[in-house]
Amino acid sequence: MIHSWNNVIFHIDMDSFFASVESSKRPELKGLPLVIGSDPKSGSGRGVVSTCSYEARRFGIHSAMPISKAYRLCPDAVFLPVNSKLYKEVSDRIMRILRSYADRFEQVSIDEAYLDMSSKVCDHTTATKFATQIKNKVVETEGITCSVGVAPGKTVAKIASDHDKPNGLTIVQPTEVKQFLAPLPVAKIPGIGKKTEQILKQMQIKDIGELADADIQILMNKFGKHAISMKSIANGIDVRELKDKTEVKSISKEDTFDFDTNDVDKIDSVLMSLCEDVHRTMLRKQFLFRTVTIKVRFKDFTTYTRASTLPFTTNDLETIKKCSRDLMQEFIDKDEFRLIGVGITKLEKIDRKQTLITDFI
């Protein structure tokens, strides 16, 4: 029974969201290997895969893969550009559906969200009922499927939603949490990346059950305070509450060069164009900013970010440009650039009574 749960959390994750949206709008694409990303240019494209259909994944294609490699793996796949406007429109409609079911709601990306269902779910039957209702409503409204994980906490719910994709439903009751987690590889825990996984393997810790039983002092010697949360999650302990993240936290734009370049003028031209794009978006959304960030990726895919925080908030374009140029100086002449990006953070909504400081830089 789920009566003993302090929290009943649903994690809803759309299945291959961008590709699914495209297929729902163009039924002739259903069942085909579909890759969403930049133009592959017959194998010479410079961007990366944003997402792909499950049919494309059978060829070894996955998100963040260079688009040129995706083309080599499956040249007969259908390659489509990212249609951000369409995906956001569909996402907004889906999130309204999900929010209508929840006591509390937390959207974590364009295609996934947590729902606190504690007041509605009292056992396995009601968990199944509501999860099925949600899945059917999304299919009826948008023609795409989602996978649902149900558990007493956010992390286990997220792991559960990934357990039976696509179109899955996995319910983990309180008495089953440790049993469910124990055989899974440690990399299933969100936040444990390849480096942490490798260190754990060197410690003879490969699955979550072994992590749950590991000596906390030994873990802390390796991972510091992070070890406490790792071991807690491995034991199924997660008391974090949902937070309705409706505010915009950052605005950013990036561009991948057609060819790797160390042409200073070209780099600066693209940098300034990105600054202008970010500035237009900021004005449209009526924000001020205090931190400017740049992103640099070299031809070997090494990636760096740098940030500069101002002592004041502003919406001045020239401030964004100057900060970006200053931050970029560290990287000029080091190697050929593959990608650059510009972003702003520490955003505040414009107060019409506020006096802007724009002449200090």
Rank of each mutant, 00 (worst) to 15 (best):
F360H: 12
E142V: 09
G31E: 11
I294F: 03
V139N: 07
G341F: 00
M272L: 15
K137I: 09
L184K: 04
R93V: 11
H163P: 06
K346W: 05
T51V: 07
V248L: 14
C146N: 05
H226S: 15
D213V: 11
I205F: 03
G193R: 07
I350K: 01
K25M: 15
S38E: 06
Y87C: 04
T51Y: 03
D359R: 10
R306C: 08
F10D: 00
H226N: 15
F17Q: 00
T293Q: 07
G60R: 04
L310A: 07
P27C: 11
K194Y: 11
K353P: 06
F17G: 01
N221I: 11
G209P: 10
H163G: 06
M95I: 05
E22N: 07
S44C: 13
A234Y: 02
L184H: 04
T302F: 11
Q107M: 08
A127L: 07
L169R: 00
T345I: 05
L34W: 01
V270E: 03
S229V: 15
I67K: 01
R297F: 05
K334L: 13
S68M: 10
F105Y: 11
A151E: 02
K194Q: 14
R306G: 07
I171T: 03
I61Q: 01
D238I: 09
T51Q: 03
D359G: 09
I320V: 12
T314D: 09
D258N: 15
K129D: 13
S252P: 04
S118K: 06
S16D: 03
Y101V: 07
P66Q: 05
L339I: 11
S147F: 02
F337K: 02
A113T: 03
G224N: 10
E140G: 08
S269C: 13
D268P: 06
K249C: 10
D15G: 07
A234P: 06
V49W: 01
A160S: 08
K88E: 12
I171R: 01
T246M: 13
C323L: 09
S252E: 09
K135E: 05
K253C: 13
Q286F: 10
Q179K: 13
I94E: 01
R240G: 14
E112V: 05
V248C: 12
V49S: 00
P75R: 10
T314S: 11
Q107L: 04
V138P: 00
A157W: 00
Y54G: 02
F289E: 00
I237V: 15
E318P: 04
A157D: 01
D335P: 08
N7T: 12
K154F: 04
K222V: 13
A234G: 09
I320W: 01
V138Y: 00
K225F: 11
V186A: 04
V90Q: 00
R104C: 09
A214G: 09
A102M: 07
P174I: 04
T246P: 06
F312E: 12
I350M: 06
D244Y: 12
F289S: 01
V177T: 08
L184N: 02
